Computed example of a mutant assay.
Amino acid sequence: MSTPKLVATDLDGTLVRADGSVSDFTRDVLVKLEEMGVPVIFVTGRPLRWTRVLFEHIGSVGLAIVSNGALVWDVATDQPRLTRLIEPTLTAEVVAALKANVPGLVFATETLEGWSGEPAFAPHVSGTLEPAKRVAPIEELAEESLIKLLGRRHEDDDADELLAAAVAVVGDRVNVTHSSFPLLEISAPGVTKASTLELVCTELGISAADVIAFGDMPNDLPMLTWAGTSYAMADAHPSVTACASHVAPGHEDDGVARVLAGVFGL
């Protein structure tokens, strides 16, 4: 393959270790790519507040794609470069359809100001969420445009089965995915990691063929399909392994950095 001109990488389960850290080796590789003039774009399902802790590793391109493509954040100016929001009317339609057909779902919302949720909504891992901005019925929370709509039911739900049930109800009216937990992550129609990455790459004058991308979960599938070169992590979801053109070592073994060191001759 020709040498890529841009690196697009997921964070959790991909670039970042299980404890949330970035290893010294990975940090060194990112610095060397920056010195070579190769942009590295973080493309994550994380909300903005969980991505800020990694902004120190963002190079001169200064952009992060967060919330599965719903937000492009300009790190240098600390403001949004692009928002791709779910409008209130559509949110109301989707919530009503899911409540009628996937019993037991409870909802939360994500905006630039933080997350809000219904009283029954709880963190998918106890203790990982800061206090909600608002606690109210979803019909009230959905009266503003949203970065992301979240839906959950039981901690022991199968994530793939819950996703399939939701997609069967809403179709392509919105984009629905998950990133390992039984938590529905719902974005505006057509909003994926890939579609927003394509917008950023077009602005930079870089084609899909010149992008190398890394991921591990279903929310990475559009990006891995779009990029000219794609890597699933060694412990990726089976659908990701089947989709990607290559497999990288696991995230605990600095898989992204090791592949990049080889590809760029570092």
Rank of each mutant, 00 (worst) to 15 (best):
D235M: 04
L150A: 11
A8K: 01
A8G: 15
D216N: 14
P218L: 06
A242C: 03
H178R: 00
P123A: 15
A64I: 08
L33W: 01
H178K: 05
G215E: 04
P182N: 09
L266T: 00
A18K: 13
D216L: 01
G250H: 04
S187V: 01
E203R: 10
A194H: 07
V256E: 06
V7I: 15
S116W: 01
A248G: 08
L90Q: 12
V31T: 15
A142L: 11
G59E: 11
P47G: 12
A120R: 10
V40Q: 09
N219R: 00
L184S: 07
G171N: 09
V135T: 15
A236T: 02
G114F: 03
V7N: 11
P123S: 13
S116F: 03
G265L: 01
G250F: 03
V240Q: 05
P119R: 07
T111Q: 12
K99N: 14
L204A: 14
I41E: 03
A122P: 00
F25R: 14
R81C: 00
I65C: 04
L82K: 06
D24G: 09
W50H: 14
S245W: 00
R27M: 05
P182C: 10
L98N: 07
G190S: 10
F25H: 14
K32M: 04
A64P: 00
D253I: 00
V95Y: 03
E130M: 13
V256R: 02
K133N: 11
I212T: 09
V7D: 11
R27S: 15
D12H: 07
G250R: 04
V43L: 05
A209K: 10
S207A: 14
A164D: 15
A236F: 00
K193C: 10
G114Q: 10
A209M: 01
S195V: 03
M36N: 13
S23V: 12
R152W: 02
A188L: 04
V170D: 02
V167Q: 14
P80F: 00
K148L: 08
I41P: 02
R49A: 14
T26H: 02
T89I: 03
P131I: 07
A100R: 11
K5M: 10
P222D: 09
